[in-house]
């Protein structure tokens, strides 16, 4: 009850940011960079263990952007120049230039390494096909359906590889799913291709959209858990899910990942209490709103600590420990 987890990314420590820049300039080898990525991954695994998180993430030390990382490894994708996504944040938006194909597993190695460091479960982390398509320029397919379904087959193979590698939790992020409510059935169809036959618990993270436009239809998304942001709306979004009844497991975002300000324990507890008026306790996990990569290491760590403390107090108050 009220297990704690994270959405995916953590901030890269300064030494890794410097190393990535050096690698881009050609001043560092891939092996040298990989060693530092593993060092940072281990630091984050230990950090999560120390804080007392229940279900861990590897922190995505090897990834820049959640779409571009996969696009760079797929045949048929090119990478464009930088485009802005929010404030002063930019990413290299991928371009679909030809038929999309996967030549090798893309997320398995990072998962296996992280899982080898801990006895706690680590999530296998993927970006969903609808989001991959929506956050790419398409110069090839011309049909969003065709592009999404081509990506679905690729992500399906990746998810199966993660499960074969031992992942008990597989998260297929679809933050873009609320972008075009008229296309929700396409996103559901694509997710069905991926999750059919998987035995792992499946999760999809969705954020920063208008949930009203996709609820309750989103309950048809074939995953076990929806991971949603609530702190960003000061928990006002919770009301959307009050009726009709939410039928899946839910990860409730209680930390604003785009604010430097550290939430107080009482703010988080109040958010959890409000969530408990909408969802059953057995349905709920607690996590931040989204990946914490935009914070500093210290800010992210402090936010996770206060989250876990708040959950502990709620459990005590409820007699759930």
């Amino acid at each position: 009850m009220l297990e704690t987890t994270s959405v995916g990314s953590f901030p890269k420590p300064p030494y890794l940011t410097k190393a990535r820049n050096a690698f881009t300039r050609g001043d560092m080898t891939a092996d040298e960079l990989g060693a530092l990525e593993r060092r940072a991954t281990e630091e984050w695994i230990r950090c999560q263990e120390d804080i007392g998180i229940d279900i861990l993430v590897h922190g995505e030390m090897e990834r820049g952007d959640m779409t571009t990382y996969f696009a760079e490894q797929l045949t048929g994708y090119g990478i464009s120049g930088l485009v802005r996504s929010y404030g002063n944040r930019y990413y290299r938006k991928p371009i679909i230039e030809g038929v999309l194909e996967r030549s090798k597993p893309m997320a398995v190695e990072a998962y296996q390494f992280a899982q080898s460091l801990t006895r706690l479960p680590v999530k296998g982390m993927l970006t969903g096909p609808y989001t991959m398509c929506d956050w790419s320029f398409d110069e090839h397919y011309g049909s969003r359906h065709d592009a999404v379904m081509a990506l679905a087959e690729i992500i399906r193979d990746e998810a199966r590889d993660l499960e074969r590698a031992g992942a008990r939790f597989i998260q297929i992020d679809e933050p873009a799913i609320s972008t075009r409510p008229a296309e929700i059935d396409l996103a559901i169809e694509a997710m069905g291709v991926i999750t059919e036959g998987l035995k792992a618990m499946t999760i999809s993270h969705i954020c920063y959209g208008d949930f009203k436009t996709i609820y309750p239809h989103i309950l048809k998304l074939p995953v076990d858990q929806l991971d949603l942001e609530f702190a960003n709306s000061h928990f006002a979004n919770l009301e959307i899910f009050r009726s009709p009844k939410f039928t899946k497991k839910v990860a409730v975002g209680v930390i604003d990942v785009h604010s430097h300000i550290l939430e107080t324990k009482s703010q988080i507890k109040e958010g959890i209490r409000r969530a408990l008026t909408v969802f059953e306790p057995e349905q709920i996990m607690i996590d931040p709103d989204c990946g914490l990569k935009t914070r500093t290491v210290e800010e992210a760590t402090d936010k996770l600590k206060v989250m876990v403390d708040a959950v502990g107090e709620i459990k005590q108050e409820m007699g759930w420990e």
Partner: peptide, 13 residues
């Protein structure tokens, strides 16, 4: 206020 998507773009404000 809170972060929200700018129409149907991967851009937020």
């Amino acid at each position: 206020g809170g972060l929200i998507r700018f129409f149907d773009n991967n851009v937020y404000y």
